[in-house]
Write a protein that binds this DNA or RNA. Structure first.
Length: 738
DNA sequence: AGCTTGTCGTCGACACAATTATTGC
DNA sequence: CTGCACGAAGGAAGCAATAATTGTGTCGACGACAAGCT
């Protein structure tokens, strides 16, 4: 099969100065395209289509046009000539594509939206208000923003920060307010804009390649039987439904349409989380996991829509007890010899295929092949796990709480059973050296302290326990020994940290769950501080050094020596400010920003970055939240006390609690807490750089006057250089959205 | 006039429930 | 292949758990103030 042709593109629009471009008013001024073949590193074609003249760029085909109409039509012709299989970009499905269509409509270019592969098929836009869906027949659209938002949890999803995260490189950020200036300048400034635009087309291609999206998407589409476009535009349930339909057709069964069947609004009981015996464990903790718990339960007990026996069915059919399973939630399902379920069959296939993929993965040496196989096994795992969720989705296509509540009820029994067996079997009475103790467990796992001192011994006992307990369950339910934590810091349910060992020689990594280190709603300062402390405690086993590190950080914070970027907190905006029942910092800030500059204000679904500034005593946090860039620009003082009290003290207290007798006293009381100063961020490193630079930030010429950042030549391009400078300072990308 | 006493409002501390965001599995 | 009439549609995995913050209510301390007493 010929390799896919992939087109990555980005458009720039001239907005009225400082505002987001409106497709009804503001023209498309540049389109950058990068064409690659799947599997090839070098771009096949790189070009830029611009309005008005533009200086040449080495290696790039720069095409200048007199009218916007010519630019759009040139792009249409380019698409038809290149005939790409996949069209990608960043936020193309919500911005670039609808914008182009709208412009063509405004300019009355009826012949523009003929981009598909079916002759004369027009590009169609579905949905008027909220969801814009554009169909280009025969070509797959793949929006990297959507993909990354779906697959990765990041603090910011700007192309800049995403590129920094995955590719280790940043783009040249051009402030939205100067795009018009660059366009209205000369051929040279338009060249600058073109380079920027081209980079925005190039980065999505790099991301697609690096994250192996083509492989994983094709695999996922293949195993679940949905089009690739569904993977980004629709949820999990469509995949399960697709598999169900596929299987049902083979069996000559029909699936009822139950959607209009009133509101099944009640919820069902989920999994058991064992009580966490909090503490710092300096003995190895073995972790036993049920492999694919919920799928194996559904297979073991033949749970399916077509095996469920309702009370009426039971009366009518009068089934003998030996041909049914009675679940702990008191539902009845027939055994496979009466009727084999569709869901177990789907799951069997998915799991068998995943096993093959894993085996292939082990064999594979070539990195390219490994990438394919790894994404394949991952796709199968995800598919298997979402089958249970589908049956419990009361607002979904085919809810069946009898199945989902049965699954969880079996799960609850099994984790309790596993705990009981471990604690009954591994005792001094039975000839073992120590009494084993289950210190924690969540849904499908038990953490066992066998009492032994070495990782090796814990592994041996773990394997023994897993094997003997597996034997007490129905096939294919299996308890596996997975890893050893040593040492292990258990804080509460769902929050712990430890060194993760899979072989007795060396630990694999430091693993943290639920703690501030893995949460996105903390500032970087807290995240870094907690990570560093845990590292010192768990890896170095040096508590005094961790304490000293905390003290130094507190001292720096008090003296305002912490970079502002480390103090930025981000939270997702889930609804508009008016719809919040209680006022929230990010919600109120979003409301204020909306009033300030509506075009750049955060929307629902965006993450809102903010810092806490000083204010009158007793002021609520939501009154003190402020946009980090606004804080920088206006030299507003931040509130170190807030960060000390509300951000870093509690998380540190929780971590040190099992280790130090009186953590608050040890960490927060002492000479390092005395040096209080109320300086503004202008004293911090980053702004010193920006304000007091003696050479011009634009052209690096030395400036004679003292209070200027730009020489007379570069005056007037402040915003552009501001962006560049801050981006180079490894700073702005952390929170500059859009 | 100077003191005592009672009332009233304010403030801070604290407990508690509700809301919100996020993660674990 | 094109044009027209007609009908349908939107669209969604789950629960358990922690922690921060807001909002509300209660309680006690404290000071201001006025009235009354010596």
């Amino acid at each position: 099969m010929a390799p896919f042709r992939i087109l990555s593109f980005d458009i720039e629009c001239a907005g009225r100065k400082g505002l987001f471009p409106e497709p009804t008013h503001d023209p498309v001024i540049q389109i950058a395209n990068v064409v690659t073949l799947q599997g090839c590193d070098l771009p096949l074609i790189q070009n830029v289509m611009t309005l008005k003249s533009c200086s040449p760029i080495v290696g790039v085909d720069v095409m200048s046009f007199d009218t916007e109409r010519d630019v759009l039509l040139a792009w249409r012709d380019f698409i038809r000539e290149i005939d790409p299989d996949i069209i990608i970009g960043y936020n193309i499905c919500k911005f670039d594509l609808p914008y182009l269509l709208k412009r063509a409509e405004v300019l009355k270019i009826a012949e523009f939206p003929i981009l598909g592969r079916i002759r004369n098929s027009r590009v169609r836009q579905y949905g008027v208000r909220k969801s814009k869906e554009i169909s280009i027949k025969g070509r797959v659209q793949f929006d990297l923003l959507q993909a990354i938002q779906r697959d990765y949890k990041l603090s910011s999803y700007s192309l800049n920060s995403v590129s920094a995260h995955f590719l280790g490189q940043q783009k040249e950020d051009v402030h939205y307010s100067i795009i018009s200036d660059l366009q209205n300048g000369n051929a040279e400034t338009r060249r600058r804009l073109a380079v920027y635009c081209l980079k925005d087309a190039y980065l999505p291609q790099r991301l697609l390649d690096k994250l192996m999206y083509v492989y994983s998407s094709v695999e996922m589409a293949r195993v679940t039987g949905v089009p690739i476009s569904f993977l980004l535009s629709k949820g999990q349930s469509i995949k399960v439904l697709s598999q169900l339909l596929r299987k049902a057709k083979q069996r000559n069964l029909v699936i009822p349409n139950v959607k209009g069947q009133g509101s099944v609004s009640d919820t069902f009981e989920g999994a058991t989380v064992l009580e966490a015996k909090a503490g710092f464990y300096e003995k190895p903790i073995a972790t036993l996991d049920f492999a694919s718990l919920y799928p194996s339960i559904m297979m073991a007990y033949n749970l399916c829509y077509c095996t469920l026996v309702t009370p009426e069915d039971a009366r009518r059919l009068n089934l003998p007890p030996e041909s049914v399973h009675k679940t702990p939630s008191n539902e009845t399902f027939v055994k496979p010899d009466v009727q084999k379920g569709i869901l177990p069959e789907i799951l069997e296939e998915l799991i068998a295929a995943r096993k093959r993929a894993k085996a292939d993965l082990k064999e594979a040496k070539d990195p390219f092949e490994r990438a394919v196989l790894d994404s394949r096994q991952l796709a199968l795992k995800i598919s298997a796990n979402s089958v249970y969720g589908f049956t419990g989705a009361t607002v979904g296509q085919l809810p069946c709480l009898e199945i989902s509540s049965s699954v969880t009820s079996y799960g609850r029994e099994m984790i309790k059973h596993a705990k009981k067996i471990v604690e009954e079997k591994f005792t001094t009475m039975a000839g073992y050296e120590y009494n084993a103790e289950v210190i924690y467990g969540d849904t499908d796992s038990v953490m066992v302290q066998f009492g032994v001192q070495t990782v090796d011994a814990a592994m041996k006992l773990g394997k023994e326990a897993a094997d003997s307990i597996s034997g007490t369950f129905t096939e294919p339910i299996k308890l596996e020994f997975e890893k050893v934590y040593f040492p292990y810091l258990l804080i509460t349910k769902k929050r712990y940290a430890g060194l993760y060992w899979t072989n007795p020689e060396m630990f694999d990594k430091m693993d943290t769950k639920g703690i501030e280190t893995v949460r996105r709603d903390n500032c970087l300062l807290v995240k870094n501080l907690v990570t560093e402390c845990l590292y010192k405690i768990l890896v170095d086993r040096d508590v005094p050094s961790a304490v000293q590190y905390v003290k130094n950080t507190i001292s720096d914070l008090r003296k305002n020596r912490i970079d502002l970027s480390l103090l930025v907190i981000t939270k997702g905006l889930t609804k508009t400010a008016d719809n919040y029942a209680v006022k929230t910092a990010h919600g109120e800030l979003a409301k204020r920003l909306q009033k300030r500059v509506a075009s750049t204000a955060p929307n629902v679904g965006d993450r809102v970055p903010y810092v806490i500034i000083t204010a009158a005593k007793g002021a609520k946090a939501y009154e003190r939240a402020e946009d980090p860039i606004y804080v920088l620009e206006n030299n507003i003082p931040i509130d170190p006390q807030y960060y000390l009290k509300n951000q870093i003290s509690k998380p540190l207290e929780r971590i040190f609690k099992p280790i130090l007798p009186d953590p608050l006293k040890e960490l927060f009381h002492g000479s390092h807490t005395r040096a209080v100063s109320m300086s503004t961020p202008s004293n911090s490193g980053i702004m010193k750089f920006a304000k007091k630079q003696l050479s011009c930030l634009g052209c690096k010429a030395v400036i004679s006057g003292s209070n200027r950042t730009l020489c007379s030549h570069c005056k007037g391009r402040e915003a552009e250089f501001y962006c560049k400078t801050v981006a180079n300072g490894n700073f702005l990308f952390l929170f500059l959205s859009k």
